[in-house]
């Protein structure tokens, strides 16, 4: 279980390390989901864990999302710490009754008698020509609900440190990975490096405009920042990392300094993450901003299959560049 923090680790392997370390640390932690044991998980996040921890701790389920999610909630009520893998966020829709009506409500509705220390991991996002039913970004659905905590890691280090925090947290945590990030490599922390919820991180410092992005969009924003820097525009890229809780202070502090904000969100534009963040920023920064807050979202369409249409639907670095330049009144150079 040695962790060489100097060696770059892929996002999927960072998650694997977190699961392995927490399984070893706490006998109440167990994993369940479709094809996670014998098949190592659809995205190979659970590779080798069945061999190391056995079928009691790493459990293949039938294709029965509502059932096994509810089962895990019940097990969590008994004090276990299940980590559920739902193959993609699209299938979590089948389990929404269990997540929203049970997991999110049980601690409050019964006056704090039982907590639900469950983690539900699943990737969201598009970009692999999987069409409408396999490409959704539904972060906002979960972030809407009091009682849930919502975490969206963008780097291997965050994937590991936030997942460890999630597993040790006593509340239901929705842990949304991204299909486009599993191969992304970077440094990771050691077994005791937990990243607390509710702390945004500045991914790149800048003075002209604040760009807020999470999950895979962080990398889109950073690429746009490079292109903007070549034009003499320095943007500050901030990753909220968690939406429940939300570190508004860091976001608003940056926007007050730059006077400009653009939000990049792979989800749809209507009533979603970007809309919610924009509202918070208007409320917190109205007197400081010099232009309406810009938003770059997935197009307001079900995701198409054709490669060129899919790319047109998803936020691209060029879209972020254009939104920033428009926001600061530079137009497209």
């Amino acid at each position: 279980m040695s962790t060489d923090t100097a060696k770059p680790v892929a996002y999927r392997d960072a998650l694997n390390q977190a699961l392995r370390e927490e399984l070893a640390r706490d006998p109440d932690v167990f994993l369940l989901g479709e094809d996670i044991a014998g098949f190592d998980g659809a995205f190979k996040v659970t590779r080798g864990l069945l061999q190391e921890f056995g079928p009691q701790r790493v459990v293949d389920t039938p294709i029965t999302e509502a059932g096994f999610t509810g089962l895990a909630i019940g097990a969590a009520m008994a004090g276990l710490r299940p980590v559920v893998e739902i193959m993609t966020v699209n299938f979590a829709i089948l389990a929404m009754d269990q997540i929203v009506n049970n997991a999110a409500k049980i601690h409050y509705m019964f006056g704090g008698q039982v907590s639900v220390p469950i983690v539900i991991r699943m990737p969201g996002g598009g970009g692999h020509q999987l069409s409408s039913q396999h490409s959704q970004t539904l972060d906002a659905w979960f972030a809407h609900v009091p009682g849930l905590k919502v975490v969206c890691p963008s780097t291997p280090e965050d994937a590991k440190g936030l997942l460890k925090t999630a597993i040790r947290d006593d509340d239901p945590v929705i842990f949304i990975e991204n299909e486009g990030l599993y191969g992304k490599k970077g440094p990771v922390g050691g077994p005791d490096d937990l990243i607390p919820f509710g702390q945004a991180v500045v991914r790149r410092a800048g003075t002209h405009c604040t760009v807020i992005a999470h999950s895979r969009m962080v990398w889109v924003a950073l690429q746009a920042a490079e292109e903007l820097a070549a034009q003499g525009v320095e943007v500050e890229v901030i990753d909220p990392r968690t939406f429940r809780p939300l570190d508004l202070d860091t976001l608003a502090g940056s926007v007050r300094r730059t006077g400009h904000a653009v939000i990049v969100d792979e989800g749809w534009p209507e009533y979603g993450i970007s809309a919610g963040l924009a509202t918070h920023l208007y409320e917190a920064c109205f007197d400081w901003i010099d232009a309406p807050i810009g938003r770059v979202n997935c197009a307001d369409v079900p995701m198409p299959y054709a490669k060129n249409l899919e790319q047109a639907a998803l936020p691209q670095p060029a879209d972020v560049v254009a939104a920033v330049l428009a926001n600061i009144g530079r137009g497209i150079a």
Binding site: A66, G67, F68, T69, G70, L71, A72, I73, G74, A75, A76, M77, A78, G79, L80, D97, Q98, N101, N102, I106, F110, V114
Partner: peptide
């Protein structure tokens, strides 16, 4: 372990309690 308002929605919770046992 409770009364629940969604018809059928409590059954997996009972199953999870059995799983924990």
């Amino acid at each position: 372990y409770g009364g629940y308002g969604i018809v059928g929605g409590s059954v997996p919770l009972g199953l999870g309690l059995a799983y924990a046992i």
